[in-house]
Design a protein around this nucleic acid. Structure first.
Lengths: 234, 234
DNA sequence: GAGTGGTCTAGACCACTTC
DNA sequence: AAGTGGTCTAGACCACTCT
């Protein structure tokens, strides 16, 4: 039903830029009004529609006008997939891969107990031969007990989804900018005045289990984060 | 009730990092379970808690950790309010304020027609005497026809909300990092190797009308964007 | 099996706009 | 006053986790 609504919006089946009222939709789709509200809520969060109490529900004209710019992104989870590759091939160079005991900090972030171990994975990501990101991550052994060097040299998220039926759907990330260290400069081919962007945080599985703590240092010219923010709660 | 829950979380009243189950909360607060769910949903979207079906609701350990002194919260729009000042006073220094014809690009971004005019506003934001952000914005005259130099030296969003009954609730933003220009260095007091973070995008009124195109250049050490991303809605 | 969150229903009443 | 979205209730049933 959500999907149908979205399709109809794209199909321009609401030339008034206005949706039927919730009660009608509820009847038309044979679901409760609450269910309709949930669906509309999703569309509103994606910036596709907006609701005006007392007036109705309208299609965001800008969404239709300029789809490339005004669509919800901010959903950058699978890194390999979320960077535009522009014809270039994404590569991964494994820098370090070992099993280490979880530090106190990791224990807290990943919900581990003392004595638990984690994979420490350090990788360099490239497009063709151009490195653009240093990735430093920790994954609990008990969540992914079968990580091999081969897996870790590819997309870990894809492996999990395809082979382990585990889906990463949430992340808590914090982003900032920083001058590059000499290490960054060497690995990413930057000059001293060229900075990096840092994204760090935790990835969660579908069920809320924290799955990976990750620190990503990116060439500033390969980093661009788009987000559609709605401020209404609280 | 939402507020109370949030306060209790901040107060560390759940040392287990675990909240009571929804049915108990529902009883404790004397509201329906649906209402509790709505409240928890808000907290979950803010990344404060996460829920594990079948297990319970837990507090995000990272949330408590990332309370840096100055940071821009991903879920806030009014800039003045969204920087934590830690006792310091946020100030605004007006650098430039004039009316200019809208360029072709502005016409597109702000939904204007050729011949329309916009305010061009350039401001420096400071905490006490420490500048941390250069703000360069454009606002259509026809949306806010009464902007004065006085208004523009304070919080424009607050003015709109308090005096004009217009609320800015949405924004489409893109973020990146860049080396600082000599201009940046002069205005923000940076050295040559210190970078800036750039946030640029469009603010919308709550009816979807684009209200401002803004470009913000921040000292890298005053920028920190937290975001909780959920990838499931289709 | 008991406990917990997820989804959904059917309906009441409130708040805002003017369809 | 009529229409429309917002909030809330009380409860049913499902899906998953824990032991």
């Amino acid at each position: 039903m959500l999907h149908d609504l979205k399709a109809r919006i794209h199909d321009n089946q609401f030339p008034n830029k206005r949706l039927p009222d919730e009660r009608s939709l509820s009847e038309a789709y044979n679901v409760s009004r609450s269910s309709i509200k949930r669906a509309l809520e999703v569309l509103a969060n994606q910036g596709i529609i907006f609701k005006k109490r007392g007036s109705g529900t309208f299609i965001n004209p800008l969404y239709m006008k300029n789809q490339t710019i005004f669509h919800y992104e901010g959903t950058n989870l699978g890194i390999t997939d979320s960077f535009k590759s522009d014809g270039q091939t994404p590569n991964i160079k494994l820098l370090d891969f070992q099993v280490v005991p979880a530090t106190a900090e990791l224990q807290q972030d990943l919900f581990l107990e003392s004595g638990d171990f984690v994979y420490e994975i350090k990788r360099l990501r490239l497009f063709d031969d151009q490195p653009f990101m240093i990735e430093h991550g920790y994954i609990p052994i008990k969540i992914a007990p079968e990580l091999s060097q081969k897996v870790v040299s590819g997309s870990i998220f894809n492996y999990l989804e395809d082979e382990q039926n585990k889906v990463v759907t949430k992340s808590f990330m914090t982003m900032r900018a920083a001058p590059s260290t000499s290490d960054d400069q060497k690995l990413l081919g930057l000059s001293a005045v060229e900075p990096i962007a840092i994204m760090e945080g935790i990835f969660f599985l579908d069920d809320g289990t924290p799955f990976e703590v990750s620190n990503m240092r990116l060439r500033y010219d390969y980093f661009n984060y788009n987000t559609f923010v709605t401020l209404d709660e609280e």
